[in-house]
Simulated assay, not measured.
Amino acid sequence: MEKESITCFQYKLRNLACDGEILKLLKALHERCGGQWVYSVHQNYEVYPDTPELSEAFFYPEWWKRRVVRPAFPGIQEFGWEEGRSFHFIHSSQTVNGEVRHLLQIRGEEEFTEEDHVLLDYACILTGYMKALPAASEGISTLMGNAYRGIRPETIPEGVFPENGYGIVVLERGDKGILKQQGYLGYRLHRSFRKCLRYCFLDETHLLLFVSADNVMKVTEQLEEIIGFGDDDMIMGISGLYSAAEMDQALGEARHSVEVGNLTDMDRTVFFHCELGIFRILDYPKPGSPVNRLMDQMTEKLMEYPKEKRDALSDTMCCFVKNHYNYQKTADAMYAHVNTIRYRISLLENLWSCDLQREEDRLLFEVVSRLLPLWVKETGYE
C-alpha cells in the first residue's frame, strides 16, 4: 500500500491532538517513523511502544553526545549514546504555561531523516495545544515540599493528586547515592503507579510520596524493589490515610516515623506511624518542640556528671522503668546491689526534682526513659 503523503499524515496527527489522544499520536508517529516515542510533562510520561523499562539513556543527558547534524528545524537536537548498546535521539521541547514539555524519538543506530525532523517538530507544536497530561503540574514538588515542612496546602490542583492517600518519606542514610537518580526513579515510580502516586525529591537523601492504595504494605514492597533497598542504606516512614488537602499531616507523620525509626531500630527498613506507640504523641526529635526543651533541660543537669557516672544513671533509669519500678528486679538485671540502685534513683529524683511515689513523676520517668536513647544517638554526647 502506498505511503500517505506527509501532508495527509500531519492532518491525521492534528486530529489526534485535537481529540487529546497523546498515546494514539505517539503510536501513529511510531508506525510512520519507527523508534520509541516519549512525551513528558513534569512527573508524567507517555511512551510508545511501552516497555518494562524505558532506557536509562533518556534520563541522563550528561551521557548524550551531541551529533553534528543540521536538523530541518533549529529547535531540534540530535544526540547519540553508547553504553553497551547504541541509541540515537532527536529531541524537541517547549514551555507552555510554565511547564516544559518534551518530545523525544529514540531509535537504534539508523540515521534520522529530514521527515523525522519535520514530524517531530510538528508533533511538538501540536502537543502545546493539547491539554496537559492528566496530572501535569509544575507545582507538585513545591506543594509537597511545603507540606513536608508543615504548611497545609491552600488549594489542591484538580486531578493532580489522588483524593486520599498515604504519606511516605524515604530516607537514604548510606552513601550509595541511590536517590541521585531522580529522573530515572521518577519514571519508574510513574510507570509502576501511574495516577495513584505523586512524588517529590526533596534533596538527594529524601524522597516524598503521596500514594493511593488499597494495600499500603504491598506498596512499600514495590517501592523497596523500585528504589533498591539493601542492607540498612534506605528506610521508609508511612503515615495513616489522609485526604490530599491534609497532605501536611500525612507527610508530617511519615517524616516523624522515619526520624524515630532512624534513631531507634537499625535492623528495620519500614516504619508505620500507627506502630510507633508512645512516639505517636511525642514529636521528639523535632527541633523546638516542648519535648525537645524538656530533654535539653533534664540532660543538661545529667551532663554535670562525668560520662561514666551519667551513663550508669541513665542505664539504671531505663532498666528501672522497664522493670516496673522494682528495685530488686532492676538490681538483678544490672548485676548490682539493690542499695546501689536505690542510691542512683535517689540521685535522679533529686537532680530532676521528682518523687517516684507520685504517679505523674513515674510517667515522666517513663517518657524520658523512652526518649533518652534517641537523645544519645542524635546528639552523640560523650
Score class of each variant (00 low, 15 high):
76 I>W: 01
200 C>L: 07
199 Y>D: 02
187 Y>H: 06
28 A>M: 02
163 E>L: 06
97 N>Y: 05
320 F>C: 07
107 R>D: 11
128 G>K: 07
136 A>K: 00
127 T>A: 11
75 G>V: 14
357 Q>Y: 12
10 Q>R: 08
93 S>E: 06
359 E>Y: 12
364 L>V: 03
24 K>I: 07
64 W>M: 08
368 V>P: 03
139 G>P: 06
252 G>T: 00
187 Y>F: 06
24 K>T: 13
344 R>E: 05
34 G>M: 07
8 C>A: 14
302 L>S: 03
373 P>Q: 00
289 S>T: 11
344 R>A: 02
62 E>S: 10
362 R>E: 05
140 I>Q: 02
108 G>Y: 09
374 L>M: 15
48 Y>L: 05
372 L>T: 10
252 G>H: 01
126 L>P: 01
203 D>L: 06
107 R>H: 12
356 L>Y: 14
97 N>T: 09
63 W>Y: 09
16 L>T: 06
151 I>D: 08
273 H>E: 13
206 H>E: 01
335 Y>V: 13
249 Q>Y: 15
330 T>L: 01
374 L>S: 00
370 R>I: 07
107 R>C: 07
235 I>P: 01
258 V>K: 03
193 F>P: 00
77 Q>K: 14
74 P>F: 03
213 A>E: 09
197 L>C: 11
29 L>I: 03
